[in-house]
Amino acid sequence: MAPAIIIIILALLYPLGYMVYGSFRAWDPSQNISESEFVGLKNYITLFYDPAFRESLVVTLTFAVCVVFSELVIGVGLALMLDRNIRGMSVLRTLFILPMMIAPVVVGLMWRYMYHPTVGTFNKTLKSFGLDGIDWLGQNALLSVIIADVWQWTPFIFILSLAALQSLPRSAIEAAKIDGATSWQQIIHIKLPLMMPVLIVTALLRLIDAFKVLEVILVMTEGGPGLSTEILALRISRTATEFRELGVAAAMSNYLLIILLILTVSMYAITRIQENRAARLARQIQEEY
């Protein structure tokens, strides 16, 4: 038992400790970490007042909230529409899942070429209708990367909500039909509330992922134009490689880690609350009978 635990702790905590340790130092990639100067909380405080870092935080937050919200609305909407047995449905479902299986770098490249101002699919199509092209990766860059991410990750929410939908008690939905509920009322009063536990966890999982997104944006915009799509992961990697400030990059990573920790802990808390509630009910019933 004990050796295994020690190995696990070392394997997990050593890199983490290394990062925390580095974040307190003015650390340059050419130096050995122990040679670097200890600066205390300076890196954290500098970041706190750094407009570029703040901008990056805002971009990341905007990106994460927008993609998760859109993916939820579209994914759950699709699941609600396709939750029936029609011929060919299994083929359609497989098609929907395809984007998720493509490597993010490929997705980024694909969309970058589709967004190309002159030869890209979108602007060519717009022009064939006599419309002006859109500056996709220029002033609309954030929206464009959001669209690409939504395209890739909506299937994830779609699959999970479809599974949730299909495991709902059929007879409760039938009872609602008998009780006079229209399709819309069945969704609002029965299906969505019953799917809620799954949806909350799914949304949190996606939010955690969205905060860490890198490849697609790196390939599509490299964070530009300006800082308009420079999400945290990109900022961190640039700080470490271009600006050669490993200590600051480590501090940034720790800020991101704190955000992700809060999200993860709240996810566990929510599942825990649900489990506890179920256990309490079971006990209550047992005590009564």
Partner: peptide
């Protein structure tokens, strides 16, 4: 209608 598994709204 009364269902076999009661079909209550949980």
């Amino acid at each position: 209608m009364v269902f076999q598994d009661y079909a209550l709204y949980p």
